[in-house]
């Protein structure tokens, strides 16, 4: 075995294990979305509770938070309280709107869920799954923040709790409402 063969072998092994190590900590929920900075699809759907049509079109010029959820989703229950908290925090700002999107669910289940856990904002139903695909949704819960210009500014896969809650409220929504620029994560 020559010296260079030995060196190559060692380097390959080190590289491999570095890769595996990084892979362990890589957040499987972190999906770089191609949607950041693009126009938010102006979707519409019937209200879960009333059945009236809700359209994103009517909220143009406001900061919109879209929260995809389902009654069968465990992590949605985890984030429910802090999502309500988030709404409490900003609901008095006339430029803020929060819409839940009920995804891959049965209507009675979704209604029952809202009755049981309570809600303070409107939820539209994604009847054929088209909304979710328009937003490139992988699963629930997923949260999107849309700015006043109708562009998607932020996306998060997973429950909005703990430091994610702090991040979304303080670093994304609050500055957007004040018209300040936000750093867009890739």
């Amino acid at each position: 075995m020559t010296k260079s063969t030995q060196l190559t072998l060692v380097l390959v092994l080190l590289g491999l294990f570095y890769l595996f190590y990084e892979g362990l900590w890589g957040n499987p929920r972190h999906i770089p979305t191609v949607l950041i900075g693009t126009d938010a699809p102006m979707v519409e759907g019937p209200d879960v509770e009333t059945g009236e049509m809700i359209s994103l079109e009517q909220f143009k010029g406001k900061v919109v938070l879209l929260n995809f959820w389902a009654s069968w989703c465990y992590e949605c229950k985890v984030e429910h309280e802090s999502v309500l908290e988030l709404h409490r925090l900003f609901k008095d700002d006339p430029n803020f709107v929060m819409i839940g999107v009920n995804y891959q669910d049965k209507l009675p289940d979704a209604q029952q869920y809202l009755k049981e856990y309570g809600t303070t904002f409107a939820h539209m139903r994604d009847v054929k799954g088209q909304l979710a695909i328009d937003y490139g949704v992988y699963g629930v819960p997923e949260t999107f923040v849309i700015d006043q210009q109708g562009k998607i500014r932020y996306k998060y896969v997973g429950p909005v709790t703990g430091h994610m809650y702090t991040k979304i409220t303080q670093e994304i929504i609050a500055p957007l409402l004040k018209g300040q620029p936000v750093s867009t994560p890739s």
């Binding site: 891959q104 054929k128 799954g129 088209q130 979710a132 695909i133 699963g139």
Partner: peptide, 9 residues
């Protein structure tokens, strides 16, 4: 279900 909906799309 997502695959089914994507086929629908």
């Amino acid at each position: 279900p997502l695959a089914q909906q994507m086929r629908g799309v």
